[in-house]
Design a protein around this nucleic acid. Structure first.
Lengths: 239, 239
DNA sequence: ATTTTTCAGTACGGAAACGCACCCATTGCC
DNA sequence: GGCAATGGGTGCGTTTCCGTACTGAAAAAT
């Protein structure tokens, strides 16, 4: 549980934006948690038990179909909340959600959040805008998947992860990057080499460090940026 | 405006599900409209003026970026409503929305719908579930764009359009199919030939007729079906 | 310290789709 | 009926990425 005065230490942008009047609905029910790499947060078709306000780390939302095709449809970090379907009135997870980069945050029981959203119009509006932000991200992912080259998609992903991290070191294997982008592992390896050669990143086994972010942004081009800009608009760019 | 007793003639599934108690918020404000091919419904970054409950026809929601890359992220027909961002508390359109297949329906002024959603919890829940359904569709599109072959994506699109049509004739040029799928026009032409050779469709200039739907479903495989199943679950399969 | 596992590097043939470009057929228009 | 515009068919070289698979290096396990 999180005391009212503890709000100052909150890094999660969404929690930050919870109105003072709404805080009693949320704050007392938050449970601080640490989240390991690959820790499962939601399983497709299973009820959502908790929603996570991340402080640190990156969660990956991955769509899976009946033939086991899978691809990431969005990432969630300190800017948002997991369990979007819950906000939409659906108690079940549609996608697989798990920590891609270990972190920490606060979680709230699903039923508490649902109740809070039902009670407070302002809280509901906030959550809905966050969900809308995620929707935009998913749409942009659809665009990138359909039209961007592997290299551009990789750049986009690195930038989105970087936005949600406090260091430049991305602790991920090529294998996992490949799963998220829906491409071959070897394809990722080759693309990273290209980045390395151009001085955009450095690599170590199981880790990649962002060296030249503007350079990566240039590679991603217009495939990166829209969801980020739109989220700022939705949640207000003030602070 | 639509009289209360006229509800029986409504084909739109969402309107159908509007509770009797909520009907006064909606019904009196509906305006019957016919919608031509390519008629614009929403323009990116512009305010949404009306939401459309389609009866007939198919609307296409297309994501566009600053470098003019574009791809369809979802379709809307008699099962839903346009203007999803409005339901999420956002007054501006994120994507380009226009009629892909001409039709008709009822529209409601944006502010009226927003007001109605604010007033009625049940109406809000209904609209949110519809939005959630669209979100699932977008996620599935991201999956298909990333992992499916052109042929599978084409099959998927045809099935989704067919679901929303009353005939088997899809009045579309290869050019437009190509835009929606984010591929070359010539690529669509070749893929359609393949379908034709296998007796799945027949074609005429500017038109394609679905002959063997099960065959097309087989081509699409698991890339088709999830959003459809989930929408049924969300809106209840009763009736 | 040795074994086992995981991860990254690399290669190669092939499939899928692209960019471009040209031509013909159908349709709409004056 | 003749002309312009639109839509469809086709070809070709090229790019991108896949499937598969083998290897060595680094890390983890015993």
């Amino acid at each position: 549980m999180l005391e009212s005065h503890a709000r100052a230490g909150i890094r999660n942008r969404l929690l930050h934006k919870v109105a003072l009047e709404d805080w009693d609905l949320i704050g007392p029910h938050l449970e601080a948690v640490t989240l390991k790499e690959r820790q499962v947060i939601e399983v497709p078709a299973k009820p959502i038990t908790h929603c996570y306000f991340l402080e640190i780390g990156v969660a990956s939302v991955v769509a899976v179909d009946s033939e086991d095709h899978r691809i990431e449809v969005g990432v969630i970090g300190y800017e948002g909340i997991t369990g979007v379907p819950l906000i939409m009135g659906d108690s079940r997870a549609q996608h697989s959600t798990y920590m891609q980069i270990a972190g920490a945050g606060h979680r709230i029981p699903a039923d508490v959040l649902v109740g809070a959203i039902a009670k407070s119009e302002t809280l509901r509006a906030l959550m809905l805008k966050s969900a809308q932000g995620f929707m935009i991200q998913t749409a942009q992912t659809a665009l990138a998947n359909g039209r961007a080259k592997l290299e551009q998609r990789l750049a986009r992903w690195l930038l989105m992860a970087h936005d949600r991290m406090t260091t430049d070191a991305v602790p991920l294997t090529h294998e996992f990057l490949a799963v998220m982008l829906g491409v071959r592992r070897a394809g990722v390896t080759v693309a990273i080499h290209g980045f390395e050669r151009r001085g955009l990143v450095t690599t170590r086994r199981g880790q990649l460090t962002i060296v030249n972010r503007p350079g990566i942004e240039q590679v991603a081009g217009s495939f990166y940026g829209t969801p980020e800009t739109e989220l700022k608009r939705l949640l207000g760019d003030s602070k």
